[in-house]
Amino acid sequence: MLTTSSLVLGAAAEHSGINTGDIVFQLAMFIVLMLLLKKFAWGPLMGIMKQREEHVAGEITAAENSRKEAAKLLEEQRNLLKEARNEAQSMMENARKQGDVQREEIIAAARAEAERLKEGAKLEIEQQKEKAVAAIREQVAHLSVLIASKVIEKELNAADQDKLINEYIQEAGDIR
């Protein structure tokens, strides 16, 4: 007790008594310790743990969202690809059809043109033939008049003569 004798303020301490001071001190110290720790250690630590929890939850949600987004995009791309393929196929089909149609048209046009040319040629031939026949007929008429006048030695008027000539020509045509 020598070391503490200077601190003894009251009567000589009894060892058997209750250490009321310790009780008060312990109580105060514990409460102060708890409050200090709450302010300086547990509070921030709980804060960061909560923050981490929220962060993890947020990350999970974000991952979920981006996964959904990716799936949606994939589906979209797949649809687009399918569409493009279909379009290409239909374009090819169209082109082929159009080609067929055009070919048919060209062929038809060519055929029509040929027909027209043929018709034209035929017509011209016919006309030429008519013309030739008419020319011959005229020639023959002259000759006939000449021949008739010489053969029958008889004057005929123009009307009778024409009539007669036509009869001859008709005959000549039937024979030929």
Partner: peptide
């Protein structure tokens, strides 16, 4: 022995105070 002092009518065991 325990280093006991009395202060303001309360008994303090200084060893306890120190260790607390």
């Amino acid at each position: 022995e325990n280093p006991i002092v009395t202060f303001l009518g309360l008994q303090f065991n200084l060893a306890n105070v120190l260790m607390i």
